[in-house]
């Protein structure tokens, strides 16, 4: 029974949504809309589950004093600090809006002067930017080591990457700007556009069609109850 009911729900919901896709009229259209709203409501609860899971993993790590457990304290401190700053609207001031005084609790949790805004602007934002900016250094080092013309395939990749890389630079312009009109298609700008619009698009489409077919087959297996891994257990 514990398995049969979830399997029946999955089958019914899957079947109704497939029918709604091909017959977008009531009652299927209405059911599709309601299921979408159910999905959005469930998605909100995923945040609570996510927070709970983060707590469980990191508290356990600190308690067990596993490797790098000190970093978990930083994670937990950040988590609770942001949560409390937002929940209790610390620092939010009473303001006048349309002639009405908006009290502390009715104010915006990330409005001017709030601790949440301060933490977001002064820690979260610069930290995220820093982490992403570091990529430039690693890309430079990795490109230097990895982009070597060792085989024909590697050489093709190298040339394509090089053309895309120098396209916005003055080098990209001066290398080919002098080409006569019949050879203008060989300018770095045109080559770069061609690489993205033709070989890249072909490869991406092939991957996407493959993924789509995989999703269709996995979805059918779920709807028909062949794939039962999501139920947990054996």
């Amino acid at each position: 029974m514990k398995r049969t009911i979830p399997l029946l729900i999955t089958f019914a919901v899957g079947l109704i949504l497939i029918i709604a896709m091909f017959i977008p009229h009531d009652p299927f259209f209405d059911m599709d809309r309601n299921f979408s709203i159910f999905y959005d409501v469930i998605a909100v609860f995923a945040f609570i589950l996510g927070g709970g899971n983060l707590l469980r993993v990191h508290l356990d790590k600190v308690y067990q004093k596993r490797r790098d457990w000190k970093y978990s304290i930083v994670t937990l401190t950040g988590f609770f600090l942001m949560l409390l700053a937002g929940l209790f609207k610390i620092g939010v001031q009473s303001t006048l809006q349309n002639g009405v005084v908006i009290g502390h609790w009715a104010g915006d949790f990330q409005g001017t002067g709030s601790l949440f805004k301060y933490l977001y602007d002064c820690t979260f934002q610069p930290l995220q930017s820093t982490m992403f900016a570091l990529l430039a250094f690693f890309v430079a080092s990795a490109s230097y080591r990895a982009f070597r013309a060792k085989t024909i395939e590697a050489s093709i990749l190298l040339v394509a990457a090089f053309v895309i890389l120098i396209r916005p630079t003055p080098l990209g312009y001066y290398l080919t700007f002098w080409l006569p009109d019949p050879l203008k298609f060989l300018t770095i700008s045109n080559l770069s556009t061609w690489i993205l619009a033709v070989p890249n698009m072909v490869g991406q489409r092939a991957i996407m069609i493959g993924i789509a077919l995989g999703i269709v087959s996995t979805s059918l297996r779920l709807i028909l109850g062949i794939e039962r891994g999501y139920l947990g257990g054996e």
């Binding site: 430079a140 080591r145 070597r148 916005p168 630079t169 080098l171």
Partner: peptide, 17 residues
């Protein structure tokens, strides 16, 4: 900065090859 960073990467790719 992005253009000059691209030029540095391009120079290193040429040097490496």
């Amino acid at each position: 900065p992005q253009v000059s960073a691209h030029l540095v990467i391009a120079a290193f790719i040429i040097l490496g090859n």
